[in-house]
Amino acid sequence: MIKSRKYCQGHLPPFRCCPETASTIMAVQLIVVVLILPVAYFRFGIRSAFIIFSCGLVGALAQVTLLRISGKKSFGSNAHSALLGILAALMLPVDVDLHIAIFAAIAAVLLGKYIFGGLGNYFLHPALLGTAITYILFRDNILIVSGTLRNLTASSMQNLDLAENIRKFGDLSDFLLGNASGCICQSASLFFIIMGIYFIYRGYINWRSVVIYILTISILSVFCPLNIIDPAGRDIGKMSIFMMNPSLGQWVTFLAYEIFAGSIIFTAFILHADMASRPITNRGQYLFACIAAALTIILQFYTTIPLPAPAAMLIAGMLSRPIDNLTRPK
């Protein structure tokens, strides 16, 4: 017996649940990234975990407050804003002052997301933008420990020893398991890989983009010339890894440090999961990955910008719309 008379013209297809709503996507990403909290706690102490948690909370509160002030209905889910806060915190040193971290979270939501019109309307990753602004404004208060190979040290060009240079960084496992000092995004690569694999499984990242990004970085890092400096810090020349003719073991070690030590894994697997700041089509994302990888190497080898991979992603974001125009169906 049909009792309900609710039917018809007001009801439009599809008559199936959406496989995944935007809120679900943001919530899943937040839950996965929040799993870094135990790593932060056990590796860097309760203060670090507290800062990350606070940034997430402040991000969500910033959204709620802005909604109330502006009277707007919604410009994206609270989970997304919380995620932005956490990502901003991950890109700051673990011993950063709390007020600086909170500033970064608020800047990400307000300047990176709200100003552009909310979720889906921005083209630069809000967390990256917020962090960049924080680094610029508080550069005297933030001590950056570089986790990447930016130049090679040798007494002379003839005494160049690649293995010696790499050994100076320390044990690779420190970078994989979150033992290295600096920002968490530079040192917990293994955990970010696990998170990224889950994002790939859920379809938030195209695995080909990740592979293209990492491969391009690997190739360019080998062929692009590095600055050679003497122990006094003077520039004595340039040489690429390829030109050094290293042994197979040295190749592998260098590439392992290049990829896993530093923020490349964090950028490839976590930052790339933000859908609004990357090109829409798969082909566009592959091109974007190549450009971001090239910019990463340029910033890493030839500038002193801290966290070159996220910075490169931020700059490449400016090209996401032009890339869309090139690659979208016509």
């Binding site: 008559f15 979720l119 889906g120 309307n121 859908m275 609004a276 829409i280 979208r328």
Partner: peptide, 29 residues
């Protein structure tokens, strides 16, 4: 198709996920 619970879909804003383009069988935008 008789539905006991019609799924309620709340319309939001585009998040530029690209799934509509990726899954479109005729390749439009």
């Amino acid at each position: 198709i008789v539905l006991a619970d019609k799924p309620v879909r709340q319309v939001g804003t585009c998040i530029r996920c690209g799934r509509c383009i990726e899954n479109c069988p005729v390749g439009i935008d």
